[in-house]
Computed example of a mutant assay.
Amino acid sequence: MFRSYLRLVLFAVGLLVGVQIPGFINDYSQRIEAHWQESEQSLSGFRQTAKQFFNGDLDALVAHYRASSDPVFASDANSLTNLLVRSRLLDAEWQAMNGPWYVRVWHVAFNANPDLFKETYDGYRYQVLLAPEAIAWGIGCALLLAFVVELLVLGAGWTLGFNRTHKVTQHEQRPWR
């Protein structure tokens, strides 16, 4: 009986953990989009200047700033370079988060930007979404967790000799009398 309740608790934990996955991925995606939009807005003036004088090439604008003898322009070249690097990073993240669901899951699990992942994790509030994908993730994680733990427990029990049936030889048999 205790094993049955333990299995139910394990299943419930897996379910609650599983329904967090789509919520976290959604929060990460929204954070990326917000930072990406902010980055694009920060570069909009520079994009107009590059479009007007360098056929839209922001790298040529940076090179022009670097080549200037004015120390203010040289300093602005460094600032603009930092903005471009950040923009390209956010654009790559944004592109990854606009793919199919399995690409987003893989990206967040294995390729997410560590700073943005930590920022999302620090701001994440646990939630129980009742969206179909959250329910599917919850049930999938619950079944997987229950299956893995059951296999581990049964494997350990088998290895240690629990639940093995003892074969009775003919010499060990005793009459009922």
Score class of each variant (00 low, 15 high):
Asp27Pro: 05
Gly99Thr: 09
Ala156Arg: 10
Glu38Trp: 09
Val128Gln: 05
Glu119Thr: 07
Leu154Lys: 04
Val153Leu: 14
Gln170Met: 13
Phe162Ala: 09
Leu152Met: 13
Ala77Leu: 08
Gly140Trp: 03
Leu6Asp: 04
Ser79Met: 10
Pro132Asn: 04
Met97Ile: 12
Arg86Glu: 14
Tyr121Asp: 01
Ala146Ser: 09
Leu154Gly: 02
Val103Ser: 08
Gln52Trp: 12
Arg174Thr: 14
Asn111Cys: 10
Phe117Val: 08
Gly161Ser: 11
Thr159Ala: 15
Val108Leu: 12
Asn111Thr: 11
Lys51His: 11
Thr81Pro: 03
Leu152Gly: 06
His107Asn: 11
His166Cys: 10
Tyr121Ala: 09
Ser75Val: 02
Arg3Ser: 02
Gln30Thr: 06
Pro100Ser: 15
Asn55Ala: 11
Leu15Gly: 01
Asn26Arg: 06
Gly14Pro: 01
Trp176Pro: 03
Asp27Gly: 05
Leu58Gly: 03
Val72Gln: 01
Trp94Val: 05
Arg86Tyr: 11
Glu93Asn: 06
Asp76Cys: 07
Gly23Asp: 09
Asn82Tyr: 11
Leu84Gly: 00
Ala146Phe: 12
Phe24Met: 00
Ala136Met: 04
Pro132Gly: 04
Arg3Val: 02
Leu90Ser: 02
Lys167Gln: 14
Arg174Gln: 15
Val128Met: 07
Asp115Cys: 10
Tyr28His: 04
Pro175Ile: 13
Arg174Ile: 12
Cys141Thr: 01
Glu33Thr: 08
Arg164Leu: 13
Glu133Trp: 06
Leu84Ala: 02
Leu15His: 05
Gly123Ser: 13
Tyr65Gln: 13
Asp70Gln: 08
Pro71Ala: 05
Glu119Gln: 15
Gln170Asp: 14
Lys118Met: 13
Arg31Ala: 14
Gln37His: 08
Ala50Tyr: 12
Gln170Val: 15
Gln173Val: 15
Gly18His: 00
Thr120Lys: 06
Val153His: 04
Ser4Thr: 03
Pro71Trp: 10
Trp176Gln: 13
Cys141Lys: 00
Tyr126Gly: 00
Asn78Glu: 14
